[in-house]
Amino acid sequence: MSDKKIIPAPLANEGLPPDERGLFCDAAPREYEPARGIMEDFANWARSESLWILGFGTGCGAIELRPLMTSRFDMYRYGIQPRPTPRQSSVFVIGGYASVKTLKRIVRSYEQMMGPKFVVALGSCTINGGMYWDSYNTIKRIDQYIPVDVYITGCMPRPEALLAGFQELKKIIRAGRAEGQNEYARNFEWFKANQKKVIKDWNMPDYNW
């Protein structure tokens, strides 16, 4: 928003073949300043009451999202509903372990979401590797690769724990502390370096909106 910000250098998109580079953006993400005062409070209230989950089950933990839709847990009453496309959703639930192959898709989906966007990391595997702490192909900390707002411990956490996590996320959003999008833009170089360190065949654009 502000003019003071330095415009970052264009991204190289080196992973793409030359004829595809023009199809993707080459500008790094930038930070968005929140609105001021009561406007931002109102916007944050609306964001917290309308959480749309990206319907992308990234691991075994995604199985815990399904019961939330059923009559027993009924997440709709909290304004939470699944959305099949990253363009429309605002919450990304990392369902447990993330292999390197999945991490590629996680990064792309996360970057395609429209801000403000929130990440709920589910299960022990996202925190410190969990039972996959010695796996050859599973990352141990998801917050090295994308910013995380709420962690839910357990292996697996029950759907009740997920609902509690969403309530916690709502509190964080209302307090205006869920600025993962800006954090990602601010530390973009660091996140990208971490991602490229584990994703050896980087055959996707550097930034995907």
């Binding site: 925190i127 590797g129 702490w133 050859y136 599973t138 141990k140 900390r141 090295q144 971490n194 584990v198």
Partner: peptide, 9 residues
């Protein structure tokens, strides 16, 4: 391999 490649907490 895991310790060398992936950042642990």
């Amino acid at each position: 391999y895991s310790d060398a490649t992936y950042e642990g907490r």
